[in-house]
Amino acid sequence: MTILTDEIRGYIGRQSEQITACDAVEPGAVRRYAQAIMADDDMTYAPDATAGRYGGPVAPPIYPAFMFRRPLGTPDVLSERAEDPDFDGLVSSASDGLPELPLHGRALLNGGSEIEFLRYARHGEQVTQRSRYTDIYERESKNGAMLFVIVETEYTAGSDVLLRVRKTIIRR
């Protein structure tokens, strides 16, 4: 059975608005993140180690791609879907600003990424993102049809691009 309908194909090229993360790069969030990835890197907290190149403490390299959170005053999907047995806990549409694909109940797997780094986010900076569905295609596997969804996101701070991420999301 094919998953890739004309309706889903119509999402190719759709992009989000330019979204600003609800929180700036916070030292406490950077600390929790650095500890969670087990990288107590001095660039994330030591001004002396970072003043020259980075202009102060910075976040770990991929941090901007994980700092977009649900703002206060917006719907709490975890509560709204608490009794939905198919709800997988993901709140992806809230994080990248893209319209959710009509694939209710289908498992979502992270297929991998290409990431280009241009600079790190400094503590206190506001970060924005814009995402786009650049491709959606279907492949057969031993477990049946799988949909490959390619999303490109650019993260910026001020006039600088911090990083670009081309992510492959697999739905099956």
Partner: peptide, 16 residues
């Protein structure tokens, strides 16, 4: 615990 720490750090609650 490692996975929960990471999930909490990035506030992503994927049940898998």
């Amino acid at each position: 615990a490692h996975l929960m720490r990471w999930s909490a750090a990035m506030e992503n609650w994927h049940k898998i």
